[in-house]
Amino acid sequence: MFPEDIQVTADAVIRAAIKAGVMVATAESCTGGLVSGALTAVAGSSAVLDRGFVTYSNEAKAELLGVSEGLLMQFGAVSEPVARAMALGAVDHSRASASVSITGVAGPGGGSAEKPVGLVHFAAVGPKGAVVHVERRFGDIGREAVRLESVRVALALLLDAVTA
């Protein structure tokens, strides 16, 4: 279902989380559940994947993850502060101690000069509470390509968070 490199990384995340005894959660916007989908494609993932939040709208980010409406108004959904709040909210609203969040503009529309198509913000929280943020500007490479590249980045971040 997923490209081989994504399958390999998802498998590594699950194995690392099992070894570390860490439960994980995802908070996804522009990927619409693809990261959770990649993780659940791995046999044994139920041992460590607690839940995935698909929070496409601002309302969902606020209601399900506790992202403040003030933060969303001030910075917009596609921003570092919101990505960080989403990752922390995923841990706060689950049994997980590690999470990854993704929020971006997959295109083909919806971009602006400040937030162009292909801009994606990621954040990951590890079991010790450290939060890491990454910004990627993939460019206008097509909706599917932006989403798949985002899955790759998110899984790598989650792997680092689980093993940190």
Rank of each mutant, 00 (worst) to 15 (best):
F2V: 03
P3N: 11
D5F: 10
V8K: 14
D11S: 14
I14Q: 10
G21S: 13
G21L: 12
M23F: 12
V24L: 11
V24H: 06
C30I: 12
G32T: 01
G32E: 08
G33P: 13
L34G: 02
V35Y: 05
A38G: 02
L39Q: 09
V42R: 13
V42K: 10
G44D: 11
S45G: 14
A47M: 10
G52I: 06
T55C: 03
T55S: 13
T55D: 15
E63S: 14
E63T: 14
L64H: 08
V67I: 09
G70T: 13
A77P: 10
A77E: 13
V78L: 10
S79L: 03
R84W: 10
M86W: 04
A87I: 08
A87F: 08
A87V: 02
D92W: 10
D92T: 13
D92P: 01
H93P: 12
H93D: 14
S94P: 07
A98G: 01
S99T: 12
S101T: 07
L119Y: 03
F122S: 01
V125P: 00
P127L: 02
G129P: 00
V131C: 06
V132W: 10
V134F: 15
E135K: 15
R137M: 05
D140R: 07
L148G: 05
E149K: 10
E149N: 10
E149M: 05
R152I: 06
L155W: 00
L157F: 13
L159D: 05
L159Q: 06
A161C: 01
A161H: 01
T163K: 05
A164R: 14
